[in-house]
Design a protein around this nucleic acid. Structure first.
Length: 771
RNA sequence: GCCGGGGUGGUGAAAUGGCAGACACAGAGGACUUAAAAUCCUCUGGAGCGCAAGCUCCGUGCGGGUUCGAGUCCCGCCUCCGGCACCA
């Protein structure tokens, strides 16, 4: 060992050696317990990794190495979420092709991950944009299709004529395109593919109970699914006996107080019931509503507007004729797209009634106190002016109405969800082609498995076309094909799948990444899955994490896997902001790269600081000063270990006191690493160094020094390897077992007992403990 | 507005209801050095007292409460950060 610690001398050396030794290959044997550790696979961006991204990768690397040392077969793979809009948009911006940028950026990520010493098994690397991968994404889509869970329907999208493209909701501001403020957006009805995730709503909700996830993520999924219990009822349209308005309500007990009905402007009945006198006003309102952005429309501060259709419905409970209005506070996509107006008990209906001069009957009385004068009474109470519900408590009244409705064929108790089916079609180039063919004779025909993958054709100009169809529609060799059923002429589907389809099953692929006969090898999946620890950002709470759970349940139902939850244990890493407290981004010029930090301090010092700066699941801001401390610490360990490397390990045993301290430290570090409390695990190691550095070499003993180096190995793999070899070992430290401690030896013989009087410290006593 | 999660020294942060501030960063002083860097040693929450070893009081966003004892548990606020937001 050199006199001074110089990471540049040792880190590249050992990285090369580990690669030569194939140190990080996933074990073939399935004799030992398994541990499948997975980070959400990244989309490789041209910006490369920042020190912020390492907040995820470094702690996971430590966990993987720790699990390996404690006797597990570890699967810890890495791959690239390479298909989808982010990759395409970045390539478009740089006027390059994604098939060229994706491998380049992925190679850069891989280089950076190796640079900081992450122990991935690169023989398991996957890339979702390669045909060998997306062949099976297509296969899964067809599985959903066969099971009736993928269907086509007309949906409306925001459209900008200048962009010649569909826009996301967030890109529509004041009804205009974000890039072209002079261009109002319109809605375009396109036939889209949907995944029927709503069919799994209850299971997705109930199974949250069984998984170990951060509470906020579970809550976000619960809210997103948005289960509401209530009743679906219907009232006939006066004078048109064949028409009725079906509506959902969570407060059927207030039905006697319904003084009007409201339809969403897009509701199909609007055109049929509007009277000639009202038609012009209604058409104007509907057109305006279509132009409005979703954001404006859902604004709670907006005044509630609406228009009378001229038609009436009959309230079958109160017997009254009530006017039918349209208003944009009613959403066509929720419930039945129609509501009963109960303004006495619903604040939104109250505001609408005030604005539109509609009556406000009060049908729920507060149990104590009095009715508010200037707003609705929305709490539960007691029925009032409500026929057979008078005097009934709200909960009982709800049941009574549901029973009455069933008996009189007016409706029933039901459940509604906020979650909607997943529109999976994208009119973009860089995605997985949808394996469907349209034949004049046979209609919608799935591409047979033998013909998969439907390959994405090479296109030089892959700009979004502006026709409402993907650029693939312009490639006639792609579009024109033969029908797999009848052999006649047919056209391929030209939309591609949303990028989130790729991440619905990639965790299965990692178990047998090169298997060619199916999406995965069943035995490999049975052994490795489900994922034991899944780590990623909280931003995926209701997209990837919900979609992947749903696909997993579909696979379970299809009996191709044996578990229902892909990620029984999930953790979110805390985001690292830039030193200025803002998000790290190239445009803000505040990105700190691992490359710069490794160059300056070494990979091990960078790793330690990532672990030490705070609890790994809490957000914090980057502060380079701390890396200095980590590097200084490693230098101090170097000085200590070097003594033994020079003079040889001491033969004698450490004193009882020192021995106890050694066992106590192993106990603490083991416990903290196991619980992912890396900051305090490292603090315990630093404390132990401060203790050991004060002793003479012969007072420590070989166990004290070797166990210390072993505990350092997962966190600082390079320097630990250097130490291990310098201490005379021929094999890599990364094949060694984690040191174990003796609980008896670790037990204190004396305890300090604190004497408090009225909570104030008054005295301390040292008391011996009998063995 | 609703739902989460936070608030502890100059900074990052520790603390099964039991010695608040471990471990670090920054800072101050000292050793080594011609000098600097590096390294090592000492001090480092606030106020006060003492020649000194040391001692006293205050202190975990604010106000209450439970308890022998509260950063930790309960109630009511303030504030910051996320998420959701007309879902009938």
């Amino acid at each position: 060992m050199d006199e001074r610690y110089d990471p540049k001398q040792i880190e590249p050396k050992w990285q090369k050696q580990w690669e030569l030794e194939n140190l990080y290959l996933t074990p073939e044997s399935r004799a030992r317990p398994k541990y499948y550790l997975l980070e959400m696979f990244p989309y490789p961006s041209g910006e490369g990794l920042s020190v912020g991204h390492l907040r995820n990768y470094v702690p996971c690397d430590v966990t993987g190495r720790f699990k390996r040392m404690t006797g597990y077969n570890v699967l810890h793979p890495m791959g690239w979420d390479a298909f989808g809009l982010p990759a395409e948009n970045e390539a478009l911006l740089k006027k390059l092709h994604p098939k060229e940028t994706v491998p380049r950026y992925a190679a850069n990520y891989k280089r950076q991950l190796k640079l900081v010493g992450c122990a991935y098994d690169w023989s398991h690397e996957i890339n979702s944009s390669l045909p060998e991968y997306y062949k099976w994404t297509q296969w899964f889509f067809l599985l959903l299709f066969r099971r009736g869970l993928a269907y086509r329907a007309v949906g409306s999208q925001w459209w900008c004529d200048k962009c010649r493209s569909v826009l996301a909701n967030e890109q529509v501001i004041d009804g205009r395109c974000w890039r072209h403020s002079d261009t109002p957006v319109s809605k375009k009805d396109l036939e889209q593919w949907y995944i029927k995730i709503t069919a799994y709503a209850d299971r997705l909700l109930n199974d949250l109970e069984s998984i170990d996830w951060p509470a906020p993520i579970k809550l976000m999924q619960r809210n997103w699914i948005g289960r509401s219990e209530g009743a679906e009822l219907s009232f006939p349209v006066v004078g048109q006996s064949d028409k009725e308005i079906r509506f959902f309500t969570t407060r059927p007990d207030t039905v006697f107080g319904v003084s009007f009905m409201v339809l969403a402007p897009e509701h199909p009945l609007v055109a049929e019931i509007t009277t000639p006198a009202q038609r012009a006003a209604v058409d104007r309102y509907v057109a305006a509503a279509r132009r409005e952005s979703e954001i404006e429309r859902l604004s709670t501060t907006k005044e509630k507007t609406g228009v009378f259709t001229g038609a009436f419905a009959k309230n079958l409970f109160s017997g009254q004729q009530i006017p039918i209005w349209i208003a944009d506070y009613v959403l066509v996509t929720y419930g039945t797209g129609a509501i009963m107006g109960a303004p006495g008990q619903d604040q939104r209906d109250y505001e609408f009634a005030k604005k539109s001069d509609l009556p406000i009957p009060r049908v729920t009385a507060p149990i104590d106190g009095s009715l508010p004068e200037d707003r609705a009474f929305t709490d539960y109470g007691v029925g009032l002016n409500s026929g057979f519900l008078d005097g009934l408590k709200t909960a009982d009244a709800i049941r009574a109405v549901c029973t009455y409705a069933v008996e009189n064929k007016l409706g029933r108790a039901t459940v509604t969800y906020r979650m909607r089916d997943w529109n999976i079609s994208r009119q973009r180039y860089w995605g997985c082609p949808i394996p469907i063919v349209y034949c004049e004779r046979d209609g919608v025909v799935p591409v047979p498995e033998a013909q998969l993958p439907v390959e994405l054709p090479d296109m030089l100009d892959y700009q979004p076309s502006g026709t409402g169809r993907s650029p693939l529609a312009n490639v006639s060799e792609f579009v024109n094909t033969t029908c797999p059923k009848c052999g006649g002429p047919a056209q391929r589907e030209t939309d591609t799948l949303d990028g989130f389809a790729c991440s619905c099953w990639y965790f299965l692929r990692f178990a047998s990444p090169h298997y060619s006969r199916a999406a995965f090898e069943r035995a490999a999946v049975d052994y490795w899955l489900p994922v034991d620890l899944y780590v990623g950002g909280a931003e995926h709470a209701v997209m990837h994490l919900l979609y992947a759970r749903m696909w997993t349940k579909v696979m379970f139902d299809a009996e191709i896997i044996g578990f229902q939850e892909p990620f029984p244990r999930l953790r979110n890493q805390g985001v690292i902001g830039a030193a200025d407290g803002q998000r790290m981004s190239k445009s803000k010029g505040n990105v700190v790269t691992p490359d710069a930090m490794v160059e300056k301090y070494g990979a091990d010092a960078l790793r330690l600081w990532e672990l030490f700066m705070g609890p790994f699941d809490e957000p914090t801001n980057w502060n380079e000063d701390g890396v200095v401390g980590s590097a200084r610490y490693l230098g101090r360990v170097w000085t200590l270990v070097r003594k033994y490397a020079e003079a040889g390990l001491p033969a004698g045993a450490p004193s009882a006191l020192t021995n106890r301290k050694i066992h106590q430290t192993i106990r603490t570090v083991t416990d903290h690493v196991d619980r992912m409390r890396f900051n305090t695990a490292l603090a315990a190691l630093m404390e132990q160094l401060n203790y050991l550095a004060r002793l003479k070499p012969e007072e420590i003993g070989s166990f004290g020094i070797e166990s210390y180096v072993l505990m350092l190995a997962p966190m600082a793999p390079h320097i630990a390897e250097e130490f291990w070899r310098a201490l005379g070992h021929a094999e890599s430290i990364h094949r060694e077992a984690w040191p174990s401690f003796d609980a008896n030896l670790a037990r204190d013989e004396v305890v300090t007992v604190v004497v408090q009087v009225n909570g104030k410290l008054r005295d301390k006593l040292e008391v011996g403990i009998d063995a």
